[in-house]
Design a binder for these strands. Sequence first.
RNA 1: UGGGGCGUGGCCAAGUGGUAAGGCACGGGACUUUGGAUCCCGUAUCGAAGGUUCGAAUCCUUCCGCCCCAGCCA
Length: 561
Amino acid sequence: MAEILDFIREVVAEDVRSGKHEGRVATRFPPEPNGYLHIGHAKSICLNFGVAEELGGTCNLRFDDTNPTKEEVEYVDSIKESVRWLGFDWGDREYYASDYFDRLYDYAVDLIKAGKAYVDALSADQIRQYRGTLTEPGRNSPHRDRPIEESLDLFARMRAGEFADGALVLRARIDMASPNINMRDPTLYRILKVPHHRSGDTWCIYPMYDYAHPISDALERITHSLCTLEFEDHRPLYDWTLDQLDVPSHPQQIEFARLNVSYTVLSKRRLLELVEGHDVSGWDDPRMPTLVGLRRRGYTPGSIRDFCRRIGVAKKESVVDVAMLEHCLREDLNRWVPRRMAVLRPLRVVIENYPEGQAEEVDVINNPEDASAGTRKVPFSRVLYIERDDFREDPPKKFYRLAPGREVRLRCAYFLRCTGVVKDAKTGDIVELRCTYDRATRGGNAPNGRKVKATLHWVSATHAIPAEVRLYDRLFSVESPGAGGRDYKEDLNPDSLEVVKPCYLEPGLAAATVGEHYQFERLGYFSVDLDSRDGQLVFNRTVTLKDAWARIEGRNLVDSR
RNA sequence: UGGGGCGUGGCCAAGUGGUAAGGCACGGGACUUUGGAUCCCGUAUCGAAGGUUCGAAUCCUUCCGCCCCAGCCA
């Protein structure tokens, strides 16, 4: 079945068919290096690189670095790493708008000579006043009709550093009465006596996005310039700029809706605030929707690409359910991630009829989805740990795990029956379970065909290794943080991080290395965090497994209210 | 109240005049040595109202709602 094309792919495919742009396809991903990439950028990356790849074209990585006051090399490095991690390759086509500063300057001179731009001496404040409002036209600047020679001279001196920041500005001469505010003589160049992370102090005037972007696209002979909806109003300016100049090509700008995901925020400003306000541990905090955060959390590039494919590309502003992202993740991980046993909240179990001091090894399946993954040996002995949640002294309806008198299966080991509960004399807390096992059920099946309703994961107390596990929940507790005029920080989920320690892992996990993925059976997918040290493993819970019991239990809670 | 966009089930999203794809979520069932996975089954008349037409989500009209734009940010 042919994949359904989104409207952008349709346009590009049609252009290839009709021979527009000589049938070429050239796109670009143009991040501004002023922050880390997030899942929203992934949508754009997948679109731009995807379209190019599918139609035999190319996709450039271009840093839109025209504002030295906000941009840093730290960001370009991380952006490159994230794009690569996502699985895309820009070859040698790594560009920077700053590489075009010379040509951009020359084009500006052309504009002035053609009477299409002028140097204005109005202050930022005055320009705002002259701009008019949404419903009233603007007024011409008194300097709008300054002689061309004068503008040329002033512009050269702006470049030479003769004026202070903000003293002068180069403006396009378009139409102060345009209903499109972007066309009311937009600023093209401003003075910024700030060193640039690439061009150093070569320049003290810097081009604005609306001017630099179309020309950069044209110089790279981009065919389709894909951007988000908020730039739709800028398209007339994009086209105007290219129409005035003798540039190598005239790319077509097409806008699509940016991605929003429920229970998180996706704006650089807010993400920066979370980092600077220490609401998270950094850009790569596993709860962050940044690519470095998702990566550390244990998300795979493939799952993110799949997600971007599934959400589609359209012009409707939408909020995609984070459950969709999690679904893509689980689907990927389920296929290949090795299973292991780990007990997060241990409850001690003593098997009274199992010989003291004895131990044996049982064969445990590595991945039921993949027979070739084989089995491994896991030690079993008289004292085990099971999950506290897997025992209820007074089991509610539909709870079919362990309870007094009940028999369950220990995964790939034996049937186990609970014969007694040991409690702390003072607190009444359950501290240990007394049980018996049926040695005839080795491997997990009863010779007499007897069935059990539950299978529990377990770990041998004497063999298990301790570890720290970090459990994450959504960063925000509401679907759209900050909706209804609230401060989005009020919506932060106070329980988004829970550190559990010590947890007990089957011994083979001692060899786990940073970044590895595992499924802890019945609990979820986990990955080894970079905070791990020798003998002190730290795991991040990437995502839980779907949990039917939790749903039933939750539903009952709601029902009983 | 200027301009530019957008409105298809809870969330995405196909559909471009011929009688509403698919995915996620949700509910039910089968199967199961992860209450996982897998497999079945189930849920919309398309923002509203008029109109054109044998026939409209698709064309026309009007209305309603939501988003973006008044940075020397991108």
